[in-house]
Amino acid sequence: MKKSVFLGALTVAGIAAGAAAAGTLDDVKARGKLNCGVTTGVPGFAEPDANGVWQGFDVAVCRAVAAAVLSDPEAVEFVPTTGKTRFTALASGEIDMLARNTTWTFSRDVDLKFEFTGVNYYDGQGFMVPKELGVTSAKELDGATVCIQTGTTTELNLADFFRANNISYEPVPIETGAEAVQQYNAGACDVYTTDASALAAQRANFEDPSAHVILPEIVSKEPLGPLVRHGDNEWADIVRWTLNALVTAEELGVTSVNLAELGGGSDNPEVNRLLGTEGDLGAMLGLDKEWAKRAIGVAGNYGEVFEKNIGESTPIGLARGLNAQWTDGGLIYSPPFR
């Protein structure tokens, strides 16, 4: 009944029982795979393609971390989670990190004991309505039926917004984005609300995207970012600085095209520090010198990942907006590499 018996039983059943180890980094290295929690499918952010390969903006973060730690962007086990299961999966150690459109909130950070390692997408909750309704502002939505995708902070924001504006509404909670779209398109609800990025992504797939408008009100702040368990600071640092490396790479003009060239050394000391030709930042993280170079090498810097998965050239068609570099007036800002 104690561990020995129990582990014996586990072996019998043919399962690998994770050995108790000091930190997540050692676990990941020992396992040779990074377990990364993602959504069950949000176009552009995380979805398996027709060949079953996970693609998307959040997925790119997982791959970058895997490349930094394990030198192999494919050494990721993507664990699909729902809104309900994501936190337990992370808390119980089933996954090493969660990159799943998760809003950084006080209670999640403090009460649920997680550590957000940064923000990879600044989002906000928006509303989409059919153009024919002639609605121009969310404050005109008195009495409307609103489709909400459950399992996020969306319900709470919605309740707060309508309460603050003293208007009534009828919430229709829906489990998956696809079913929300189905109801919205059939006219079973007047308004569809979720994160503005997802609205744009889903509108792009409509039969006639121009027949729908996204209202100007953004009713919430939704900083989405990867998170890890509380208390393992070494691992949190790795995830945090991998994300920062992607951001810094864009700021410094390091792209997947010139990465090899700059990796040989350049005039800019910060680029050198980032790519490991100067100093040894990697050793401080418990990694080797070229960790950031590998992370950037997977799919390029933050801007390239953005453009490839959700940018204006993709069907999702999101503008950088708040997610532009701070030098371009956005909020994407990385602490310096020194």
Partner: peptide
């Protein structure tokens, strides 16, 4: 969030860009 046949339909298929709704 397991992808049995219904999970496959409601997740990766219905939410994919190609086969949405």
């Amino acid at each position: 969030s397991m992808f049995d046949i219904v999970g496959m339909i409601r997740g990766p298929i219905q939410q994919s860009t190609d086969w949405i709704s």
